[in-house]
């Protein structure tokens, strides 16, 4: 972690009148994919807008590529691509014209701009719809056009605000693939989303916001350790679980034990690894048919964190 952070915020705060957007955010983001997570209204969009200079901080500052973000600090925008959460609104424009317009705003000549527009349309798989007007596009296609415009000029930093919202599963998969390929080239992607298992699919690095404050930051499993104070629950199914349950109790591996209505066994534990080893042994004997650790998914981790602070 010797390289300077791509995004660097200290005390970043913003209020809308008396409504809190972000308060006192200290944050460093390094290259790679970062999932920006938080419930609705937690300040994800406000943070994005602050990082792109669309709004000014009420207090504190944000730096991108080591330069302070200001409305007139446009040189950093050359290295940054931003896909807003709002809709496109250039309703009467054709997709290629919209993208070429934005490419020209980056300094391309007319021909270059069209070429570049086609290139990003190809990247999001919309090249065959290049002359479709924006207002004739479905929500998912509009979302892809938004991602496409962020990809113009192959930026080093990609800020995507809820890019998957409203996409069908096919577009969602291809967009996530695109993000993954992008970061594989050493770029930085900040992906705001609340469809959490999709964030989980592309990154383990997350920033969690809640009520405009930083709730947690870092690797997912590091964050997970934070919630390890809470007992975990393992649900198993298999043959002859009753006798196994009795043994487990004797071995002091579990703190609680419940048979569910479906005939499965739920085990509460404070020492997960030994229990898993014990279960693996049972599994190899062929007695175990199913295994599931609750609270293991990102959604659950998030629930736990929010639940603890809220």
């Amino acid at each position: 972690m010797s390289a300077p952070p791509v995004i660097h915020c200290r005390g970043l705060s913003r209020w809308y009148g008396e409504v809190q957007g972000i308060s006192g955010l200290d944050l460093d983001i390094h290259p790679g994919i970062v999932g920006l997570l938080g419930p609705n209204g937690s300040g994800k969009t406000t943070l994005m807008r602050l990082l792109t200079g669309l709004i000014k901080p009420s207090r504190g500052y944000a730096e991108v590529f080591g330069q302070r973000v200001r409305p007139d600090q446009h040189s950093i925008f050359a290295r940054m691509g931003y896909s807003p959460g709002d809709d496109i609104h250039f309703e009467t424009e054709r997709a290629v014209d919209f993208l070429a317009l934005l490419a020209s705003l980056g300094g391309d000549s007319a021909d270059e701009a069209v070429r570049r527009a086609d290139q990003v349309l190809d990247q999001v798989g919309l090249l065959d719809r290049r002359t479709t007007k924006i207002n004739a596009m479905s929500k998912g296609m509009r979302q892809r056009v938004k991602v496409a415009q962020a990809l113009l000029f192959d930026p080093e930093l990609l800020l995507l605000d809820e890019p998957l919202n409203g996409m069908d599963p096919i577009s969602r998969r291809s967009t996530l693939d695109l993000v993954r390929d992008y970061s594989a080239r050493g770029r930085t992607v900040v992906l705001a989303s609340h469809v959490l298992h999709e964030v989980e699919a592309v990154t383990s690095q997350v920033v969690m916001l809640h009520h405009g404050r930083l709730l947690a930051e870092g690797r997912l499993d590091e964050i997970r350790e934070l919630v390890d104070r809470k007992p975990r629950r393992v649900v198993i199914s298999g043959d002859d679980l009753r006798s196994f349950a009795a043994k487990l109790l004797a071995e002091d591996l579990v703190t609680g034990l419940t048979f569910t209505e479906e005939g499965r066994l739920a085990l509460d534990t404070r020492s997960l690894p030994p229990l898993l080893d014990r279960l693996a042994a049972l599994g190899e004997s062929g007695q175990l048919h199913g295994l599931d650790i609750e609270d293991e998914k990102l959604e659950a981790v998030f629930d736990l964190l929010v639940g603890e602070t809220a």
């Binding site: 446009h74 925008f77 609104h89 705003l105 980056g106 300094g107």
Partner: peptide, 21 residues
């Protein structure tokens, strides 16, 4: 339209000074 609907966000996050667009 550009300002009210937030469409300006696409324009001003480009590497040109805001007065140019």
């Amino acid at each position: 339209e550009l300002y009210e609907q937030g469409a300006m966000a696409y324009v001003v996050t480009r590497p040109v000074p805001r007065w140019a667009p």
